[in-house]
Structures are given as C-alpha cells and as structure tokens.
Design a protein around this nucleic acid. Structure first.
Lengths: 193, 193
DNA sequence: TTTTTTGTTGATTGACGAGTCAATAAACTT
DNA sequence: AAGTTTATTGACTCGTCAATCAACAAAAAA
C-alpha cells in the first residue's frame, strides 16, 4: 500500500541507518543490505532512491556536516562576547550529538573516504574552511593578527581530540575534550600578549 | 629455483607493498592479489606466509610502529637537555619517513582498522602509551606536575596534525607541522610558570 | 638416493555483495 | 476507466576476492 511522498522519509532513514551501521562496525565495510535492513526496507529500494552505495555514503556525510553546521550556528547565535563565541564553537564540536561514538566513528571513516572519493574530500574541505573561518572570526578581537594561526592550531587540536575519542575504550567524554581545547586556547592567547 | 630462507624476504616485501598500496588507494580496500603483485609474487604465496589478509595488515601496522619507535629512540639518543628531548620526539613524528603521504594514509587507515580489529587496537594503544610516556618524561623537568596533562594535549595535537595532512593537496610539510606543535608546547609551558 | 622440507603458482572453490529487472500494487491524473 | 507515476520487493546477474588445493621444483637431510 504505497503511500506517496515516501522519498524524503526513506532517504532520511537510510542516511541515519548508514551512520549507525558505520558506527557499529567501525568501518565502511557495510553492505547496502545491512543499511537497508536497519532502515526497514529492501536493498533494492535503497538502490532505487540513491543510485549507488557511494551516493548513500555521501548523503550520510552531508547529513553529519549539516548537523554540525547547524549546531555551531545555534551556539554562535546564543553566545556573547568573543570568548563566548569561540567557546561556543568548542562546545558545539564536542556536543553530545556530534560526540556520540557512532558519529565520531562515521567522521573518521569519512576522512578515509575523502582519500579516494573527490566529492567526499570536497565536503571535508568545506567543513575545515568553515571551522577555520568561524574560529578566526571569533579570535580576531582576542588575538588580532595572530587569529588565523591560532585558529589553525585549535582546529588541528579539535580534530586530534576527536580522533583520540574514537580509540578510547570507555564512553566518549566531551567535557574533557573541551577542557583540553580550552586550555590550549588560553595558553595560546596568553602567550600572544 | 627456490632458494632457501625466503620467508623473511617475502614477508618484508609484502609488508612494504601493503603500506604502499594502502597509501596509494587511500583505503583498506586492497586485495591480496594487488599486494602480492606489487611485492612480486603470487597471491597464493602471500597466503602461504601470512595466514590471512588480516595478518598481513597487522604485520604492516607493526612495521610502521616499529619504524616510528626506532626513529624516536634514535632522535632521543642524540638529543640534549629537556627541550631537546621533547623536540626530538616532535621531529621524529614529522620526519620525512613518517610523514610521507603514503605513511600518513596508512596511519589513518590503521586507526580505522583499530575500531574493528582488537589486535590493531592493542598495537595503537601501545603506541599512544609510549608516545605519552616519552613526552611526559621529557616534559617532567620543564613542567613538573603538569607534564602528563601537557603530554596528553601535545599527543592529541600531533595526531590532529597528521589527520589534516591527509586532506592537503600539496606535498606534506613536516616542518610546518613541527612549528605548530612547538608553538603549542611553548604556550603551554609559558602558561604554567 | 630416497625422503622431507621449503618455495612457488595456476586453477578452483565458495561466499558475498552491488546493482538490475520484472512484477505487483496503490495512489494520482485525465 | 484507462493510463501514468510512485512505491516496493524477490529473484537474479555478474563480478570480485579470500582462501584452498594440487602439483611441481629445488634444496637439504637421511
């Protein structure tokens, strides 16, 4: 009994299932059947809506990046003062949503994907540019000309903390990551004066 | 015309070919045949020496970690003074050998592997522990009680810089990475005083 | 010199998985 | 009512690949 307008619903379900499965297995070795099953449909339908497995992956990646972008925008809107703005980005980066094991794992695997799929590389580059630009803007009033340099290192720090979270055995600890990043930031700012 | 004592030679060739192929394709989707061909032998022989593909991957990972460990040890031996020792670790981490695109790519993929293969996770944990211990020892005279904390953040920074190298289009720039890490270190130390 | 060990590969097996297709059915259009 | 579009899947194709096997060759041991 086919109801109309299923496409967006199905696609969203597939995207979420993809992220879940990548997080669960910890790799991109996830079959379309697995994804489709998790999303409650046949693999044929998955192929019907997305043309290929790669398209599914890319959609999942876009989804994660979009989510992250929205979270950063939201946090920025609510933030006050330069320090508040930079901190908002940190908090958003390590928010429970983006910092769930499955999301982090997906992120890492997308990094791998970026090495062989140009579109994935492009998407990741967009994320990096936006992160840097947000950080630089926030840091400008605090660090002046040194803003870009600090933004760069803080960005690397964020990625590095992400990475380490993947490998940890225990549950992810966003607060700890934020604290480390914050200390790094404070030190960098203090040194500049 | 089978010459004897081929085992270590074949194994080494396979390990090197594995790293090369992983770096080339940017993923773990490398067939045993590809590896064997690159190493100049049949895939059957690869299976003969290593039992399985996973064993080949693990051997390659051990090789990279061993190489890195040796480089760090060598640099440490030649280093003088606390600052020199910490800097030696940084230089070794971003040395041309470890920071070649193909090596970085292999690292990244081993990170992924660690998520699904316990032995890979174990190996990586060993690396992280050793790195942290080396850094902490070097930092102790400089930072006292704060040494572990700084070592932790510096370790994350190193991994983050690795990660970012993957996306860059140009050739890897170890010197720049060292500079960023060094600045982070200086700032962290300055703040502690 | 027979036997065993080591090296080596072409051919094969067996499984799995991406993508296609034909068929079915419910809704919407005309 | 007839035709079209959208939803949906089971069955199938076609390729790939890890792993095994049978067989051959040469060195070493007995």
């Amino acid at each position: 009994m086919p109801k109309l307008g299923m496409e967006p619903i199905r696609k969203e379900a597939l995207v979420k299932a993809t992220i879940f499965e990548i997080g669960r297995t910890g790799s991109l070795d996830v079959t379309v059947s697995q994804i489709a099953k998790r999303a409650g449909m046949s693999s044929a339908l998955a192929h019907h809506y997305f043309g290929s497995k790669e398209d599914i992956f890319l959609a999942a990646m876009r989804h994660i990046l979009t989510l992250y972008g929205a979270e950063v925008r939201g946090a920025l809107a609510a933030a006050e003062g330069p320090h508040g703005r930079v901190r908002a980005i940190l908090l958003a980066s390590f928010s429970p949503g983006n910092f769930r094991r499955e999301a982090v794992s997906a992120w890492l695997n997308f990094w791998v994907l970026a090495q062989s799929v140009p579109e994935a590389k492009r998407l990741l580059a967009v994320y990096q540019r936006r992160l840097k630009s947000n950080l630089t803007a926030g840091l400008r009033p605090l660090a002046g000309a040194r803003a870009p340099e600090i933004a760069e290192s803080l960005g690397a720090m964020i990625d590095g903390l992400y990475l380490r979270e993947v490998l940890k055995s225990g549950p992810p600890d966003g607060a700890a990551a934020v604290a480390v990043a914050q200390r790094h930031l404070d030190a960098a700012l203090a040194q500049g004066v």
